[in-house]
């Protein structure tokens, strides 16, 4: 059965100030209900790709299509299209301080439903539901600058959940989270995905990839996609991960013999060695 396409990206190029290349010819496809991880080292272009998928930036060459329609600045000038797209696709920014711009947590969660012209009663109902799902009842009247990193992440997710989007774009969602919050976040993604959501998560945290993604795209350091495939296959390809700066060679002595093997750091846990 053919899966309905959500995003089709063909040979997308993007550079900041026309000098600093972020994407150098990227193509990918995302279908409804897919759970995708975009792997890559810092600065490889993951965040830029998510902003392209969210219609915040537009490719300088190539095409990005969402739900079969090409995304462009002109397209977003059409209120009906912009309204429909923003209702269906949501991005959780890497930096929670960017995402949380309202004076209080309540205002933050109500922002998106309000901009989408929902009725007052519906806005309040959506905020209440998001607050309950994320278990942040105690935070609603707090100012974002007085929240901890984990609390900010929960509020950022609630602010998107209130939209009830079909497609979630998550930019490095585990950055700065302690192990418990990280595990909670994985559960949250899985719960939402079970309800039919499409998830595209950019990360370099290999630890969560097998849990939150069925398919993986890997960026190399030339801002191109180096590989694409099922999660297990990609994670088993140590040579690829090493080349794309996602794991590194670890050298140490066994007696008098120098020994080297691929290695990555599980955040807040033991190191993972490959014999």
């Amino acid at each position: 059965m053919q899966v309905e396409p959500v995003f089709e990206v063909e040979d997308a190029h993007f550079s900041y100030d026309r000098r600093q290349t972020a994407l150098a010819g990227v193509s990918l496809q995302v279908g409804r209900g897919d759970k995708i991880a975009i792997l890559g080292s810092n600065g490889s272009g993951k965040s830029t790709l998510l902003k392209l998928l969210d219609g915040l930036y537009f490719p300088q060459r190539g095409v990005v299509r969402a739900f079969g329609q090409p995304l462009s600045e002109d397209r977003f000038n059409d209120e009906t299209f912009a309204f429909d797209f923003r209702r269906r696709v949501a991005l959780v920014f890497q930096d929670a301080d960017v995402q949380l711009f309202s004076p209080t947590v309540w205002d933050e969660i109500a922002f998106a439903p309000l901009q989408l012209d929902l009725s007052e009663a519906e806005v309040k109902a959506r905020v209440a539901e998001a607050v309950q799902t994320l278990r942040i009842e105690h935070l609603v009247d707090r100012a974002p600058h007085r929240l901890s990193g984990g609390e900010k992440r929960r509020v950022a997710l609630a602010s998107v959940l209130a939209l009830r989007p079909e497609v979630w774009l998550l930019d490095e969602p585990t950055t700065g989270l302690d192990p418990r919050s990280q595990s909670w976040l994985v559960d949250f993604i899985l719960e939402q995905a079970e309800q039919g959501g499409t998830f595209i998560t950019s990360t370099h945290d290999l630890d969560i990839v097998s849990e939150i993604a069925d398919r993986v795209y890997v960026f190399d350091e030339t801002h191109r996609l180096a590989a694409e495939g099922p999660t297990e296959q990609i994670l088993a390809d140590r040579e690829l991960l090493l080349r794309c700066n996602l794991i590194h060679a670890h050298r140490h002595h066994h007696g008098d013999v120098m020994h080297a093997h691929p290695h990555w750091h599980r955040p807040h846990a033991e190191h993972v060695h490959e014999a």
Partner: peptide, 24 residues
């Protein structure tokens, strides 16, 4: 830089230049 990113975050959540707020 922050103001540019914040504006993108607002756009992403449906802001279209006419803010709507709700008093509780």
């Amino acid at each position: 830089g922050l103001s540019q990113d914040v504006y993108l975050a607002m756009l992403s959540r449906g802001y279209r230049g006419r803010p709507r707020t709700l008093d509780r």
